[in-house]
Simulated scan of single mutants.
Amino acid sequence: MLLGGIPLFNSVLKSNATTNLWRIAYPLFLILINILLAKYYNRKYLLLVLLGALIFGLNGYRTSVIGILVSVFITMYYIGKISHKIGILFVAVIAVGGLAVGYIASQSIATQHWTLNPIELIFYRAAFTQEVFEKIIPLAGTTHGHILSMIFSSGSPRSFIGNYVLHYDVCLTSTMFGPVMLDFGYIGLTIQMLFMGTFIKIIHTFAKKGVGIGIYSIILTHTLIWIETGPTDIMIWFLYLLGLILIVLQLKK
């Protein structure tokens, strides 16, 4: 309503859809729906999950839809609520939701004319993202932490990568390895991956029930999403901070 239309069907609106309202609403919904299911599971709450995925999907970003559905899937798995039928249904909804949002958004770009079908588009995006990373490798360590500083400021790391690597004014994904490789080279990449692996394993060790399962699910899900997009979202690093708080509370016990 504030934007004056549905971003999923309008690329101009989509570029303006990541507002402060969205930055608050998405992680808040994500955290609370997973904690709700982990502590007080009821099948009727899955309607809230579908409603949330639909509303955030209208923003035109498939990562929101995948983030909600996959995190809920992981939460339900760890509380023992994923039967064979529900598992198949959930995977189908995740696949259809991700494909649909990505395809519709691509068809809504006024300056581009896509002829790929939804399946081909997924493979194209994966190949393009990896090609961006391939072009980053010779530039390893040349930005000296600039991307990292942009993550925790008002900058746009993905747009900077587009300008710096391909010399286009465009927002690019560059795999989980791309941003840290540009900033700090192979040493930075090694430290990042060691940190992520260790941190997620510690969270997994402490996430036995309730709130812990919900937090673990959202951190794991968005780390998996980072495989394509790269860890350039301050909002998701906030979720890592929640994980750190969980670790500290568990250690105090």
Rank of each mutant, 00 (worst) to 15 (best):
G57V: 05
K14A: 12
G52K: 08
I86T: 05
N16T: 05
A110L: 12
T142C: 04
L116W: 11
T129L: 04
T142S: 14
V70D: 07
S64L: 04
A25N: 13
I104W: 01
L28A: 07
Q107H: 02
P157S: 07
N16S: 13
L50P: 08
N117L: 02
G155K: 00
F29N: 08
F133A: 11
T63Y: 12
G155H: 01
Y124W: 11
S153V: 13
L51R: 03
I68C: 10
G102H: 13
L89Q: 13
G60L: 01
R158I: 02
Y26T: 06
R62M: 09
S64N: 14
R125K: 15
L51Q: 03
G57R: 10
L50R: 13
M150G: 04
I136V: 15
I147F: 00
L58A: 05
I74W: 04
A38G: 01
I68E: 06
L28P: 03
I33K: 07
G155D: 08
I66P: 06
S64P: 02
Y45C: 03
N42S: 14
G98D: 06
R62W: 00
A95G: 05
Y26R: 11
T75D: 06
V91C: 08
I24T: 12
L51W: 10
T75R: 08
A53I: 09
G87I: 02
S108A: 13
T19I: 07
L46F: 11
K14C: 09
F29D: 02
A38F: 02
I86V: 04
E131R: 06
T111V: 05
K44Q: 12
L21A: 03
G87F: 01
Y26W: 14
I88W: 02
L116N: 13
I137L: 14
Y40F: 08
I109D: 07
S108F: 00
V93R: 06
A127H: 15
T75Q: 02
L30V: 04
G141C: 03
I74V: 13
K85D: 07
L36D: 08
K14E: 00
L58N: 06
T111E: 13
H113N: 11
R158E: 10
G60R: 10
I136Y: 12
L32E: 00
N42P: 10
T129A: 09
Q112D: 04
E120T: 01
A38E: 06
A95P: 01
N42W: 01
S64H: 15
I136K: 14
I104V: 15
L148C: 02
F56Q: 02
R125G: 11
L28F: 14
